[in-house]
């Protein structure tokens, strides 16, 4: 059963990937100028012989369908094009940066979940108290704060003023030798980027969990538990929480994509060596093959993470098995 669902998800994922490829292809062809010029880098980026070579490779004189087939074939072989600006193969530039982005986004996602669930639980359980009002104001403001600005404010406060955490990078210039020290070093660099990326989503989850805690608290099974004399803390943990966090998981798949997008901003501020920072540098240099390649890769990451969260969701909520296929 699970196996079948997994295959369906994979099929859907491949469709999305095809969609992203079509989007990339369409955008490049709709853009002003010749796609070969765009791939070689705007004005002056590529020399004439290279552009001519590209024109032939891309089959620009052939029908659009053929051109797309050539592009799709390249993608399937893992060929994302060549960055003339960096004199490097785009795929290899991206691959070496993926681990850093995964580390950052997954940590941020964990932080968002933990803070969101705790805040939401507190707010929902102690609703309309001073604590609840305070948390609502905090989440309202966090929800309105630009990711990149929060990141800069963190640098200003925790690095420049207090000196608690390093302001940029993933490792110190002098990388410690011992494996444990290296890990701690990366951890120290990770704190600020992960929190600044995670807090925005923490605010979203806090509001969601608060609403669903209030909702579940009025359910019959909770009233029954109360009537039986089950202590409040136990009701919250056993009866309410498990049901109240489900909406968070169903939203998670949408947010993974946004987190990866947000990583572009966070990595830019912190010079975190992931694909987001790569995209920013590519924007500055108008290095289109890299920009398009990163876009495609983020799509791929989202699909993979979605499959994983989907499986996790099934573990958290066994009832979903019955409605599978929708």
């Amino acid at each position: 059963m699970t196996y079948k669902i997994f295959l369906t998800r994979l099929g859907n994922g491949l469709l999305v990937l095809l969609g992203v490829a079509i989007m990339n292809f369409t955008l490049v062809h709709m853009a002003p100028g010749d796609p070969a010029m765009i791939f070689a880098g705007e004005a002056g980026g590529g020399d004439e012989t290279y552009v001519e070579q590209l024109r032939q490779d891309m089959g620009l004189d052939k029908p659009l369908v053929t051109q797309f087939a050539i592009y799709a074939g390249d993608l399937l072989r893992g060929d994302l094009g060549y960055s003339f600006r960096n004199q490097r193969d785009v795929a290899s530039m991206i691959v070496e940066r993926i681990p850093a982005t995964l580390l950052l986004t997954m940590t941020a996602f964990g932080i968002a979940l933990i803070i969101g669930i705790v805040f939401g639980m507190l707010g929902g359980w102690f609703r309309n108290t001073l604590l609840d009002r305070g948390l609502m104001i905090v989440t309202l403001v966090l929800y309105a704060t630009p990711l990149f600005w929060l990141a800069m404010m963190f640098v200003l406060l925790f690095s420049v003023r207090l000196g608690w955490f390093p302001p940029f990078g993933m490792q110190s210039v002098l990388v410690p030798d011992a494996p444990l020290d290296r890990l701690l070093d990366i951890g120290r660099h990770l704190v600020l980027p992960a929190f600044s990326l995670g807090l925005f989503y923490a605010a979203t989850y806090a509001r969601l969990v608060r609403a669903s805690v209030i909702n579940v608290s009025n359910a019959d099974f909770v009233k029954t538990a109360r009537a039986k004399g089950v202590p409040g803390g136990r009701i919250l943990r056993v009866h309410v929480l498990r049901n109240a966090i489900l909406p968070v998981f169903s939203l998670a798949s949408v947010h993974i994509g946004q987190l990866v997008g947000g990583a572009v901003l966070t990595e830019t501020v912190f010079a975190w060596p992931g694909i987001g920072r790569l995209m920013f540098d590519a924007i500055l240099q108008r290095d289109y093959p890299v920009i398009l390649g990163v876009f495609l890769t983020t799509g791929l990451l989202v699909i993979l993470v979605n499959i994983v969260t989907d499986l996790l969701y099934r573990i958290v909520d066994p009832r979903i098995e019955h409605t599978a296929g929708n």
Binding site: G19, P32, L265, Y288, T298, V302
Partner: peptide
Amino acid sequence: ELFQTVPQFAMAVVFVAIF
């Protein structure tokens, strides 16, 4: 669904950069 799954911000970046 396709437009919802794709990382929206990255897509906006691509769009603005190209045009």
